[in-house]
Structures are given as C-alpha cells and as structure tokens.
Simulated assay, not measured.
Amino acid sequence: MAAATGRDDLPERFLAMLAAERGAAANTLAAYRRDLEAARQALGDVAGADTAALEGLGAAWSDLAGSSLARRCSALRQFYGFLVDEGLREDDPSGALPRPRTRRPLPRLLSHEEVERFLARADQEAEGDRPDAVRLLALLELLYGSGLRATELVSLPLAAVPRDAPFLHITGKGGQQRMVPVSTRARAVLSRWLVLRRGNSRFLFPSSGASGYLTRVRLFQLLRGLAARAGLDPERVSPHVLRHAFATHLLEGGADLRVLQMLLGHADIATTQIYTHVDSAKLVALVNSRHPLATGRF
C-alpha cells in the first residue's frame, strides 16, 4: 500500500514526472489532473485504494461514455504504475479497473464507382508493362480483390503464390494461417508482374530496403498518388479503406458474415461486424425480397 504520509501529494508528483520525463503538454496534464480528481471524489484515498475499491468504479462511473471511462482508467493505470516504480506502493491494483469496450470508428468507404475509377486508372497506366505500374496494379487488385491487410500484402513471400491454384497462403495476426481466393483479374496481373519482377528476393514485392520488401509507408504513398491521378481525394484512400471496401461490397453482394470473417482473418466475428454498415435501404430490400413472409412461403 502507499506510504502513510504525503499521500495527498502523490498525484502532483505523478504529474510533475509526466511533465519532466515525458514532456507532457499543459492540456495533457490538465486532463490527467481532472481524471485523478474524479477518482479522488469516487475513492477518497486514490493512492491507497485496493482492488475492491477499483472494482466499484464501473458502477460509480456508469454514466460515462466508453471513451471517457477508458481515458480515466488509463490515467489511473499510469498513476499506479508510477507508484510502484517509485517504491511508493508494493502492489499494482489497476488490473481491477473496469475495461470499457469502446466501439471502433468505421473506416472511410469508397463507392463501387470510385473503386472502378481507381482500377481503371491503374489498368490504363499498366498497359505498357512498366514494372512499377504493373506492380501497383497487382497491389491494388490484391487489396480490393482479396481484402489483405497492408502488412500481409507487402510482406507476401513469393512462395505464397501457387502457380496452379487460385489461392494465396496468408500468415496473419498472431501467426494465424488462412487461404484467400485470388480473382481471375488478380491472377492475370500477378502473372504479368512475375515476368517483370527482377532479383532473387524471396518476397513477391521486393525492395532494396532493410526489410527486403515494399514498406507499408511506400504502399500508402503509391495509393495516394494513384488516387490523385484518378481524380479521387487522396485523403480518402489508404490500404485499409480498400480492405474495408472489399468487405463491405462483398457483404452487399450477399456474402455470409462467417465467410467474410474467414477471408478477413478475424479471430472474433464481432470485429467483422464493424464492416457491416450496409445502408438501411438495402437491408429493407433484403428483408422484403428474402424473408419467407415476404415471399408467401408460409
């Protein structure tokens, strides 16, 4: 537990550490001070609070938005970490703090027409078989056509592309393996890229950099440049936006959510549901056309 004397001064010592060692800005320090004061009002002795007291914060702060609760708990976790580091407390009770599940914001989305314009521009630029243009078209086809994460795409080993099967072997987050289909279009572009590709790198999209493959930053830059040339707002385009378009457009086309989960490599289907913001008009049309009551099956 915290020392018996000078306990009321510990939050200020914590804030002084943030300012001196981490260069925290005045607004940041003010936010931490407000969060610690809110904890003092709920707990009394913040520095000496035990796990039972912290477990009660979920109920005490039940009216807070998830993001606000998450911020307060983050401030307290850092505060208790400071106390332990300084030898002012032997145990860290922060594991008992509530863990709010904040809804992740939806990524930006490109419409079908915008994706078609994007692909058309990439197709046009790759007509002369310039290696950089064909590579960009292949990257784009795999982002939108297979829904790969940026890191999965740029780090694809050459061995992940079988010559006689329309699938890619992907190693995703946590080392999880999955197979994703490659469209006929993407297979054709990959064949062109493999002919133009130079060097003996083991990666499908090699680079001369330390990593040995095209970086995520460079992929981002290439897509933004293509977007500008296609007449799209570059700020609305990124690898993740194309992955999101893949998922949303598949779902709009009738794909099963479980199949989508497998294709995206999500461990939890709740993550996949973030991608399911099909507009309400399409949902109504789906119910009206597919539900048994709408089709007179009963």
Score class of each variant (00 low, 15 high):
Arg178Cys: 08
Gln124Thr: 15
Arg197Ile: 09
Pro131Ser: 00
Leu153Phe: 07
Leu196Met: 05
Phe118Leu: 15
Val134Trp: 11
Leu137Asp: 03
Ala227Asp: 03
Ala159Gly: 13
Trp193Lys: 05
Ala122Val: 14
Leu119Ile: 14
Thr215Val: 06
Ala165Cys: 07
Gly175His: 05
Ser211Gly: 06
Ala133Trp: 05
Leu194Gly: 01
Leu158Thr: 08
Ser155Gln: 04
Ala120Phe: 08
Phe203His: 14
Gly172His: 10
Phe220Pro: 07
Val115Gly: 11
Ala150His: 01
Gly172Pro: 13
Val161Lys: 03
Gln124Asn: 13
Leu153Gly: 04
Leu140Ile: 11
Thr215Ile: 03
Val195Glu: 12
Gly174Thr: 04
Leu139Ile: 07
Arg202Lys: 12
Leu194Thr: 06
Thr215Trp: 04
Val154Phe: 02
Ser146Thr: 11
Met179Leu: 12
Arg216Asn: 02
Arg187Val: 05
Thr184Lys: 09
Thr215Gly: 13
Leu110Val: 08
Gln221Gly: 15
Pro239Leu: 00
Leu204Asp: 06
Gln221Tyr: 11
Ser146Phe: 09
Pro206Lys: 01
Arg216His: 00
Leu223Arg: 01
Leu119Ala: 12
Ala188Gly: 03
Gly225His: 09
Val134Phe: 11
Ser211Met: 02
Leu153Ser: 04
Glu116Asp: 15
Gln221Trp: 10
Leu153Pro: 12
Gln176Ala: 06
Val115Glu: 11
Tyr213Leu: 01
Arg187Ala: 05
Val115Gln: 09
Arg149Pro: 09
Val180Met: 06
Leu194His: 02
Glu113Trp: 01
Leu223Ala: 01
Gly212Asn: 06
Met179Arg: 14
Leu119Asp: 10
Gly174Phe: 00
Leu158Ile: 07
Arg130Glu: 13
Arg187Thr: 03
Glu141Met: 04
Gln124Phe: 12
Phe118Val: 15
Val180Ala: 06
Leu142Ala: 06
Ser191Cys: 07
Arg163His: 04
Leu109His: 12
Val217Gly: 10
Arg202Gln: 13
Glu113Ile: 07
Leu140Thr: 15
Gly145Ser: 08
Leu142Phe: 14
Ala186Asp: 10
Pro234Arg: 09
Val154Trp: 02
Gly172Thr: 12
Gly174Ala: 01
